[in-house]
């Protein structure tokens, strides 16, 4: 059974326009919620983590970008 079948294509295409590897971002947010639920019993702080991740990916000046490993 595929874990998250949809995650493979659509979100990745959508966020590529912003220079962010969407698939990684979506997966990151789900993983962060899961981690917080497990460790802290709630998703408090996750929105800030997602925002930070987006800030890192979309910067004012062109800076080093996380490698988009989904391209292959």
């Amino acid at each position: 059974m595929n874990e998250y079948p949809m995650a493979d294509q659509a979100p990745r295409d959508a966020l590529k326009a912003y220079g962010a590897p969407t698939y990684e971002l979506a997966r990151f947010s789900v993983l962060e919620v899961a981690r917080h639920l497990k460790e802290y019993g709630g998703e408090r702080g996750v929105p800030n983590l997602i925002a930070k991740k987006i800030r890192d990916l979309i910067r004012e000046e062109p800076g080093p970008r996380a490698p988009d490993t989904d391209d292959e």
Binding site: Y4, P5, M6, A7, A10, P11, A14, L15, A17, Y18, A20, T22, L25, A26, S29, V30, I50, A51, I54, R55, L57, I58
Partner: peptide, 20 residues
């Protein structure tokens, strides 16, 4: 730009949920 990225992420996750 970041807002649009976050909105796209949310939509992507919604699609992700619907398909899953």
């Amino acid at each position: 730009k970041r807002l649009e990225a976050a909105q796209t992420l949310q939509k992507a996750l919604e699609g992700y949920l619907a398909d899953s």
